[in-house]
Simulated assay, not measured.
Amino acid sequence: MPTNQPVELPLPVQPMTRLGEQRSRTRSAYNQASVGLAYGRHAGPVPGDARQAAVLIMLAWDGAQWNLPLTKRPTSLRHHGGQICFPGGRLEAGESAVEAAVREFDEELGIVPDDLQILGRLSTMHVYASHNVVTPIVATTRQTMQFRLDPVEVAQAIMLPWDALTDESRWTMRSMQRPIFRNREVVDSFTFRYRALQFGEHLIWGATAMMLAELCQVGYR
């Protein structure tokens, strides 16, 4: 069963629960330096009707290095179809963020490690597209990851090595153009910049990239 006791890691990570002030500074600097439209979408005031959600950021030890399980969503899904994200979803009635994150990890990937240990959480984030306030829960395991994917929610499981996350050459700035609608007709467009992580054929961007960037920054003493 999950535990809230800190765990010693063979990499320079300190318990996330002690990093509230540093998390805020890291997220603020990341938004201001590299993410267009961050205020009012990811980092601005959260609307009162936003739904609560949680994701599980798992540091999984494979005997040689730490890896982070990510999921590629089926293109058929309404929100974030085809994108890469952490396993997670909305809180059910009476659930804590930790309980929801672990449950969703199990539902999507078909496993809850016996030695799962909770380190803490990163900054909450309002994900504009799905109108969710997401709490990222950070955990560790040394158990071998043998996934049983839910095909409705997961098209592919991706193991991101810690070394790839911290490789600055994989992080790039991109731009995207989006249409502006009025009365269901396109009347204009706008362009925004965002920071993304390239891992093989996979481009990781948006809220997931912001969480990964924060994890990468607060993971070092």
Rank of each mutant, 00 (worst) to 15 (best):
G81W: 04
V127W: 04
V55Q: 11
D188E: 09
L215A: 04
A33R: 05
M173Y: 04
D62S: 10
E168M: 08
A213M: 04
T172W: 05
S169N: 10
Q143I: 09
S189N: 13
V112P: 00
G219E: 02
D188P: 09
S123M: 11
A29D: 10
V55A: 09
P69K: 10
P136M: 11
P6V: 11
G48A: 14
A38P: 00
R41G: 00
V152F: 12
L116I: 15
H131W: 05
G94L: 04
Q14A: 09
L197N: 09
W66Q: 08
I204W: 07
M211L: 10
V152M: 13
L77P: 00
D188M: 06
M1I: 10
D167Q: 04
E95V: 00
V154M: 11
A157D: 09
R142H: 12
P136K: 11
C85K: 11
L149Q: 14
A53V: 03
P74S: 15
Q5P: 02
V218G: 05
H202I: 06
M210D: 05
G88E: 02
P69D: 09
A93C: 00
P179A: 11
Q156M: 09
L116F: 14
A97I: 01
P179F: 11
L91D: 01
E201G: 15
L109D: 07
S175F: 09
L119A: 03
E99P: 00
L77Y: 02
E21P: 03
R193Y: 12
T191Q: 14
D115L: 12
C85S: 08
R174F: 08
G94R: 03
S169P: 01
E108V: 02
T26L: 14
V35A: 01
A38R: 01
D163C: 04
G88Q: 03
R25C: 03
S123K: 10
V138P: 02
P2R: 14
L70E: 04
T17H: 14
G120E: 03
R51I: 08
T75N: 09
G36D: 15
G89M: 03
I118A: 03
M210G: 08
D62Y: 06
I118N: 01
G88P: 00
V55I: 14
R121M: 07
Q32V: 12
Y39H: 03
V127M: 10
T124L: 02
W162H: 09
T208N: 08
V98L: 07
